[in-house]
Simulated scan of single mutants.
Amino acid sequence: MDRAARTTVRLWDPLVRLFHISVAGVFFANYFFNEAGDDWHTWLGYYAAAWLTARTVWGFVGPRSARWSDFWPTPTRLRSHVTALLQGKDIHRLGHSPLGALVMVLMMTAIGSLALTGFLMQEVDAFWGAEWLENLHRWIANGLAGLVSLHILAALVESLRLRENLPLSMVTGRRRLPPDQH
């Protein structure tokens, strides 16, 4: 076994990876290509909502790296992470960093909010054509686009800073062990 194989561990399980690629694909398709209210937009929204539900449950019953308790962005964790970053210290952590977890939770909240507002606009007669709800849905989608951009930028910056391909770990499910855990 070579050194690289000995220093990597399985981190992201298939459900987490499928959730990630599924909601990323749905968001990209619905934000850039599908017309709001069209059948594809609606059905892909339901698909994303189903994945969000599965991922939420998986956060309680899945493996350690998928569990909310492993990475929930508590004030203490966030403060410690921000302090370390301001001091120029590298944070090598398997799984989400506290700031990464915060952005992930915000993105998941936005996806859930998009699902709810979309459902209300599409399925509840009282909200059919409600301009304020359409504006809210659009505002949330634009906010999610900003969070997605921040997520991608942070993954790239941290990959360069830590000399580790973080996006690749979401594809392969494997990640190098932090230096202090070899």
Score class of each variant (00 low, 15 high):
Met1Gln: 09
Met1His: 09
Asp2Trp: 12
Arg3Asn: 10
Ala4Val: 11
Ala4Pro: 00
Ala5Val: 10
Thr7Ile: 07
Thr7Ala: 02
Val9Lys: 12
Arg10Phe: 14
Trp12Thr: 02
Leu15Ser: 09
Leu15Ile: 14
Leu15Arg: 09
Val16Ile: 15
Arg17Phe: 06
His20Leu: 08
His20Gln: 07
Ile21Lys: 00
Ser22Ala: 15
Ser22Ile: 05
Ala24His: 08
Gly25Gln: 05
Val26Glu: 04
Val26Gly: 03
Tyr31Val: 05
Phe32Asn: 12
Phe32Thr: 12
Asn34Thr: 09
Glu35Lys: 14
Gly37Val: 08
Gly37Thr: 05
Asp39Phe: 11
Asp39Leu: 14
Asp39Val: 13
Asp39Gln: 08
Trp40Gln: 13
His41Phe: 10
Tyr46Trp: 12
Tyr46Glu: 02
Tyr47Leu: 15
Tyr47Cys: 12
Tyr47Lys: 03
Ala49His: 11
Ala49Ile: 09
Ala50Lys: 05
Thr53Ile: 14
Ala54Cys: 10
Arg55Asp: 08
Val57Met: 07
Val57Trp: 11
Trp58Ala: 06
Trp58Ser: 03
Trp58Ile: 01
Gly59His: 06
Phe60Asn: 04
Phe60Thr: 01
Val61Phe: 07
Val61Ala: 04
Pro63Thr: 11
Arg64Phe: 10
Arg64Val: 11
Ser65Thr: 02
Ala66Leu: 06
Trp68Arg: 03
Ser69Ile: 13
Asp70Glu: 13
Pro73Leu: 04
Thr74Glu: 07
Thr76Glu: 15
Thr76Gln: 14
Arg77Pro: 06
Arg77Cys: 06
Leu78Gly: 07
Ser80Glu: 15
His81Leu: 10
His81Lys: 07
Thr83Tyr: 05
Leu85Cys: 07
Lys89Val: 06
His92Pro: 04
His92Trp: 15
His92Ser: 08
Arg93Lys: 13
Gly95Glu: 04
Gly95Ser: 07
Gly95Phe: 02
His96Lys: 06
Ala101Phe: 01
Ala101Asn: 04
Ala101Tyr: 02
Met104Ser: 15
Leu106Met: 14
Leu106Val: 09
Met107Glu: 09
Met108Gly: 12
Ala110Lys: 06
Gly118Cys: 05
Phe119Asn: 02
Met121Ala: 15
Met121Arg: 11
Met121Glu: 14
Gln122Gly: 01
Gln122Ser: 12
Glu123Phe: 02
Glu123Cys: 00
Val124Ile: 13
Asp125Val: 12
Ala126Ser: 09
Ala126Thr: 08
Ala130Gln: 11
Ala130Phe: 10
Glu131Thr: 13
Glu131Asp: 13
Trp132Ala: 11
Leu133Ile: 11
Glu134Met: 10
Arg138Leu: 11
Arg138Cys: 00
Trp139Asp: 07
Ile140Tyr: 05
Ile140Glu: 00
Ala141Asp: 00
Ala141His: 00
Asn142Met: 08
Leu144Asp: 03
Gly146Thr: 09
Val148Ser: 01
Ser149Leu: 13
Leu150Gly: 08
Leu153Ser: 10
Leu153Tyr: 13
Leu153Cys: 11
Ala154Pro: 05
Ala155Met: 12
Glu158Asp: 15
Arg161Phe: 10
Leu162Pro: 04
Leu162Lys: 14
Leu162Val: 00
Leu166Pro: 03
Pro167Ser: 01
Pro167Cys: 01
Leu168Trp: 15
Ser169Pro: 00
Val171Leu: 15
Arg176Glu: 12
Arg176Phe: 09
Leu177Thr: 00
Leu177Asn: 03
Pro178Gln: 06
Pro178Trp: 05
Pro179His: 10
Gln181Ala: 15
Gln181Glu: 15
